[in-house]
Design a protein around this nucleic acid. Structure first.
Lengths: 220, 220
DNA sequence: GCGACTTTGTTCCTGCGTTCACAAGCGGTT
DNA sequence: AACCGCTTGTGAACGCAGGAACAAAGTCGC
């Protein structure tokens, strides 16, 4: 028995689906009911053919000659991404970045719900951010198990990130988003996704430098 | 005349080079003088063969039978990435995220130097963060031209991100790092690199969900 | 009611990134 | 001085993502 819709959606496609979801929400709020692949692709900054291929991974959803129904497509993508269910997340490290993450309203509408904020510094503990009170690190494991949190976000200094990672995985967290500038090691079965802001900046700078070099070469 | 070292380094390689640079700095601080590709790859979380291929893009730098000299390799990568020169950056949007970015010391050691912080809210203007004073938006163009800033970072709400992008590009900024959850459009010749935190979280959640589904299938 | 136009969904193809495997080269040892 | 083991650097194959072109299908106009 073969599944009509293969389970494996490429990671690059998943990232773009999340972007389409955001654009579709904006269109729906604007009162649009249908949208063509070309228009949606332009709003998302991708190629129209690629967009149609991405959408084909979740089955036919458009109407030929017309386009896609905005609300239906949004719901379909949300279902595939699992954004309709509420996922419990914990956030460790309430510095500036952690505060920004805890405060960010965009997560809530995407199916993410912070159930615990933690920091080692006593000065941060007790503070209220985005409707939650910052807890001491000792409460970490209890909160994770109580809410069955499967996602952890690390926004601590680099020095303690690995310890935090170890405690999170030991408590049952299976997916970790890591903002600390270190490479974390985790047991198999645990996904760690690094987001390094200075790496992003360096890639950007390099591309700009490369572009300038090419331009100078042409004029020479 | 053919360049012995082709100018075009794949973008994925550039991102990893930035990670290697970080790891090498840590090793150098720890007093290590040489390191093998296997060890470095493990510390960076990549495949040893891939690491060697990445390094091959910048010419032979290792010693067979021994490994790589830590300091020499670090300097070589830094030179290729342009991290040895100081690049002027401006940051627009001093909320929690913007404050975190302005405060982050990691940028300085990577060759980035903020020369201007800007916010539209009068309450933020005048505040001092990381040695700089937050300026009103009216000063944006003058600061960009005075320092010849080529990199702009947008950490504003989504609604004003496109306007800010337009003003930055008009003032001469050629590379933009965008943290606002919108797809920006910019003239050709300007690189915009989006960093969407909720997209990252959604991809992570989807991978976790997919993994769980596979596990359930196997046990069934 | 029929034809033409528009837009989707798919298929093919090209190029890139990644991985594996081996030859080349250097240091340590006898 | 010669050999052996270890490590780098590179060549080839594999798999994957991206882009273009085409067929299917549905709607609008006549």
């Amino acid at each position: 028995m073969i599944q009509p819709r293969p389970r494996t959606i490429p990671e690059a496609t998943v990232a773009r689906l999340a972007v389409y979801l955001r654009v579709l929400s904006g269109l729906a709020d604007g009162g649009r009911t249908t949208v063509s692949s070309g228009e949606l692709a332009s709003a998302a900054g991708v190629n129209p053919a690629g967009l149609r291929k991405d959408l084909s991974h979740l089955g036919s959803c458009g109407v030929r000659g017309v386009g896609y129904e905005v609300r239906a497509l949004r719901e379909r993508i949300a279902r595939v991404l699992g954004a309709e269910q509420s996922r419990a997340c914990v956030l460790v490290g309430i510095g500036n970045l952690g505060t920004a993450l805890a405060d960010y309203a965009g997560f809530g509408s995407r199916g993410f719900r912070f159930v615990g904020l933690f920091d080692a510094a006593p000065a941060q503990v007790g503070q209220e951010i985005g409707g939650l009170t910052v807890q001491p690190m000792t409460e970490l494991e209890a909160t994770v198990t109580a809410h069955e949190a499967s996602i952890g976000v690390i926004a601590t200094p680099a020095e303690v990130a690995q310890q935090v990672c170890d405690r999170l995985t030991a408590a049952g967290v299976r997916s970790i988003l890591n903002f600390a500038p270190v490479t974390l090691t985790a047991p198999v079965g645990v996904d760690v996704r690094p987001v390094d802001l200075s790496v992003e900046l360096q890639v950007l700078a390099f591309l700009g430098q490369q572009r300038s070099a090419r331009a100078a070469e042409v004029t020479a």
